[in-house]
């Protein structure tokens, strides 16, 4: 069994940057992710790869506590989520928000500073300077005052990335950051992600494009309702593993999922 092993990350952390321990996730009662077991060490660019509906985004959301775990646990730097939330940056899928919302690019990036600000405090000049620096890193300093809906898809994705940068995290989760993004933005995004890796961070990216995956990620996990394989990119993206990942959902899982949902036995 291949595992991703690297030298230990920074600080006095007692465990790997990210550890899924036998995680099962259910929507309602029906499991959509079965028994995921995965250890990822910082620094690195880690891709979560799989077909549509495989549960890749669900895995991220489960890690972040956005969907409840039906079983198992997730630990960050050896600690539970609540102790390390401020060290985690998150870039949700672009389609999950309404881009017609009346906020400016600067407003959105400032949201990255909210966790440190605490309740009821407004961002001040320090936060603005940080947000400007983050916008600069993704090449959007000149559109800071624009309403977010007036940007291109790639620019919108970079705004989200800038917001995550403003979180000043040690571990970044990105959900399909390259979906519907122009080539220039793609390149810019990956340049920033590579910078993060160079700074010792772990970047976990949900991704669906196999071609770019081989090129960009140090290590990947293949997921289709369960973890098919994980490890260094070249070792994992073998024809056999890919066939197992993309062969379609396993009908045993399908039958069982329905039976559990309805509280009965399978045939």
């Amino acid at each position: 069994m291949e595992r991703v092993t690297r030298t230990s990350g920074p600080g006095s952390d007692s465990g790997p940057a990210l550890e899924f321990h036998d995680v099962t996730v259910a929507y309602g009662r029906r499991p959509v992710l079965w028994n995921i077991d995965l250890v990822i060490e910082a620094p690195g660019l880690f891709g979560i790869i799989g077909p549509n509906g495989a549960g890749k985004s669900t895995l991220l959301k489960a890690a972040l506590g956005l969907v409840p775990l039906a079983g198992g646990s997730v630990r960050f730097f050896g600690r539970p989520l609540d102790e390390v939330r401020r060290r985690i940056g998150y870039v949700p899928q672009r389609e999950t928000v309404d881009w017609d919302f009346p906020v400016s690019v600067m407003d959105v990036v400032l949201m990255g500073t909210y966790a440190r600000l605490g309740w009821f405090r407004r961002p001040g000049s320090g936060e603005r300077a940080l947000a400007n620096a983050c916008l600069d890193r993704v090449g959007l300093a000149d559109v800071a005052d624009r309403q977010i809906g007036r940007l291109s898809g790639g620019q919108q994705q970079r705004v989200f990335l800038a917001r995550a940068l403003a979180q000043q995290a040690d571990l970044y989760f990105l959900d399909e950051p390259l979906a519907g993004v122009d080539a220039r933005s793609q390149e810019q995004i990956f340049r920033v992600l590579a910078e993060l890796r160079a700074a010792g961070k772990l970047v976990v990216v949900v991704h669906h494009d196999l071609r770019t995956a081989a090129e960009w990620f140090d290590a990947v996990a293949l997921v289709d309702m369960r973890l098919v394989a994980a490890g260094p990119t070249a070792a994992v993206l073998t024809p056999e593993n890919l066939r197992r990942t993309y062969a379609g959902p396993l009908d045993v899982l399908d039958e069982l999922g329905r039976a559990i949902e309805q509280g009965r036995r399978t045939p």
Binding site: G65, L66, Y90, P92, T96, V97, V103, M111, F120, R163
Partner: peptide, 21 residues
């Protein structure tokens, strides 16, 4: 007025707000 920052973020991007805890 007190909770404007919180209300606007939750309205704009509830997933991100939840990820902040």
């Amino acid at each position: 007025w007190l909770g404007l920052k919180e209300a606007v973020l939750v309205a704009f991007d509830p997933d991100f707000a939840a990820a902040l805890g």
